[in-house]
């Protein structure tokens, strides 16, 4: 259990949009505790671990291009991705209905915490009303795990301040879907908003978060206000994640946590997550 915070789980991770990269160059990124070198022309990726500017280990990583997005498969021992894992990624990406990055609002940040802390947060419903005071409560209605993904159905009861609606609060139902440990899509039919979250480990204690939000319709509001609402939702979502950082910094992952009936499906999530480490 203590490995959760120290091991980067294997799986597909988002690296960048291809159009944002110079196609004639070899580009270096800091990911997975080493230097990830990507040749954009051939989409070949290799991961080098350097000590005093000397390469001590090097292995190539499988890559995948989907709708201009570059994904890399990371495994600690350089094992290749199985066909099943690859298909799972592609099928899930296809299943996201309104997936169109050109109309999104983006939020990108690096957070000093492990991928595990970020991932577990989504099923940890009990901390929302304590840490994130702008939310009233969050209920998990369903949590279904599959070999490479999970589906989580959430009911979020917003506080009055969040949406400026008085005197009522608002219940919004979200569905969150993961692909491996590095990708979450959160969408709500009610407000027709979708947020895609890419989590890519820079090392075992730092993670890059990229959020892409799409808003299609916001109740009765005119469509030209959508970009404004979208920016508001994405930055609120991003800031919500950042509110946890102080707790994660000093947190100790306990081997056998004492859980209460008010907790979300923590152990079910941990069992699912442990398959990737």
């Amino acid at each position: 259990m203590t490995m959760f915070n120290t091991v980067i789980p294997r799986g597909w991770y988002f690296i960048s949009y291809l159009k944002k990269l110079n196609r004639k160059k070899q580009i270096e990124f800091s990911y997975f505790g080493g230097r990830l070198t990507l040749i954009t022309k051939t989409l070949k990726a290799s991961l080098n671990y350097l000590v005093d500017n000397t390469i001590i280990r090097n292995h190539s990583l499988p890559t995948l291009l989907y709708k201009d997005m570059i994904f890399v498969y990371y495994s600690e021992h350089g094992n290749p991705s199985t066909k099943e894992e690859e298909l799972s990624l592609i099928n899930k990406l296809i299943s996201i209905q309104h997936f169109d990055h050109r109309t999104t609002s983006t939020y990108c940040t690096k957070v000093p915490t492990s991928l595990f802390n970020l991932s577990e947060n989504i099923v940890d419903s009990a901390h929302f009303p304590i840490v994130h005071s702008h939310l009233s409560s969050l209920e998990i209605e369903d949590f279904i795990t599959e070999p490479y993904s999970f589906v989580l159905k959430i009911k979020l009861i917003t506080s009055r301040i969040l949406l400026f609606i008085s005197p009522m609060s608002l219940d919004i139902k979200f569905t969150s879907m993961s692909i491996g440990t590095g990708f979450f899509a959160v969408y709500s039919r009610m407000i027709e908003w979708e947020c895609i979250t890419f989590l890519t480990p820079i090392n075992h204690s730092t993670t890059q978060i990229v959020l892409y939000g799409n808003l299609h319709k916001m109740f009765f509001f005119p469509k030209f206000l959508n970009p404004l609402f979208n920016i508001f939702f994405v930055t609120t979502f991003g800031r919500t994640i950042l509110q946890d950082i102080n707790i994660w910094k000093k947190r100790e992952i306990t081997h056998q946590p004492v859980l209460s009936t008010a907790d979300g499906p923590i152990m079910k999530f941990r069992n699912w997550y442990s398959k990737f480490i």
């Binding site: 901390h127 304590i130 840490v131 102080n246 707790i247 000093k250 947190r251 100790e252 946590p257 209460s260």
Partner: peptide
Amino acid sequence: VHLGAHLGDGVIVNNCLRCPFHG
């Protein structure tokens, strides 16, 4: 003992220490 948050960031409520993570 719950999910390992550091209680040093907690607050005092009625002579008790309240965990900053889940209360």
